[in-house]
């Protein structure tokens, strides 16, 4: 009797989504890196990229969307929550789909670097573009332009760190693979 492969583990999926959502919330609100331009940028994208590289499209979409949405609500930007849910959800979903490894038993993080980077860049475009459009409708396209470089930088940092961190986590905590499959 060995542990059966996932299949029949609905609780596992729920647990994965819930914990990673909470990690995204914490990284959005708590972990900040100083930047010269606008004070701080958040590291939520690192977790979204990480989730996409390791746990696939659905977990990444829920963790990214729900996590940033909840963070907006807690952080006092409730009006952004539905938009963050859609934008970061789509970001996670697309990164995971593009980066997905064709080899059975591999996670996306095992894919060639170039593939991870391409996926990450698509994620950056979705994120920065999504906020530009959303911002345009909410408070005018002129003001929304200001945020594009900041968002590109934040999501770019997310891709670079996401690649490094997903590899270091795979090494430091090998059972993560059994969570991912």
């Amino acid at each position: 009797m060995s542990n059966g492969e996932t299949g029949n583990k609905p609780a596992m999926r729920i647990a994965l989504m819930a914990v990673l959502t909470a990690v995204v919330v914490v990284f959005t609100l708590l972990v900040r890196v100083p930047t010269p331009i606008k004070g701080y940028i958040s590291l939520c994208d690192v977790v979204i990229v990480f989730s996409a590289y390791l746990f696939g499209p659905w977990v990444a979409a829920i963790a990214g969307g729900l996590g940033t949405g909840i963070a907006d609500v807690i952080g006092g930007y409730a009006q952004w929550a539905p938009l963050s849910f859609l934008i970061h959800g789509l970001q996670g979903l697309l990164i995971a789909i593009i980066a997905r490894s064709p080899v059975k038993g591999n996670v996306a993080a095992d894919s060639p670097l170039i593939r991870l980077v391409i996926a990450g860049v698509v994620g950056m475009i979705v994120m920065a573009g999504g906020y530009y459009l959303a911002g345009g409708f909410l408070y005018g396209f002129e003001a929304a332009l200001v945020e594009i470089p900041l968002n590109l930088m934040q999501s770019g940092v997310g891709v670079v760190l996401g690649i490094i961190v997903s590899r270091s986590v795979l090494k430091a905590y090998p059972p993560v693979r059994s969570l991912a499959l």
Binding site: M1, S2, N3, G4, N8, K9, M12, P175, S178
Partner: peptide
């Protein structure tokens, strides 16, 4: 366990007479 922790289990386990092999 071993459902949620990688490992190998052998032997017979019965809870209130029910064999655990077939139990979720």
């Amino acid at each position: 366990v071993p459902r949620h922790a990688e490992g190998e289990l052998s032997g017979v386990i019965r809870i209130a007479g029910e064999d655990l092999v077939a139990t979720e």
